[in-house]
């Protein structure tokens, strides 16, 4: 339970950091479309990776969310 809470907190921090990084010049340098990846403009491929990472974090969140255990305890 304790470890789950720790992993859950880590997932939350990662989600917040990823979301905030998106609005910095690291992902959206104004008026810059290079370097491209496979012909895809910079801001698009970086933000695509962030979107996928957020969904993966959500999946991890379902595994480590401490609330799941609480619900199981409630049932028993």
């Amino acid at each position: 339970m304790h470890m789950k809470k720790k992993y859950w907190n880590m997932s939350c921090v990662a989600a917040v950091v990823l979301s905030l990084v998106t609005f910095t010049p690291l992902v959206i340098p104004q008026g810059v479309s290079k370097p491209m990846l496979g012909g895809i403009p910079y801001s698009l491929w970086t933000s695509f990776i962030i979107t996928v990472a957020l969904v993966v974090l959500t999946f991890i969140g379902t595994r480590v969310h401490p609330g799941m255990e609480e619900e199981e305890e409630d049932k028993s």
């Binding site: 933000s47 695509f48 969904v55 959500t58």
Partner: peptide, 14 residues
């Protein structure tokens, strides 16, 4: 526009 909707939706599902 991808950031406007897709990144926001990614954060929203979390």
């Amino acid at each position: 526009a991808w950031i406007f909707l897709a990144v926001s939706d990614g954060a929203m599902v979390f």
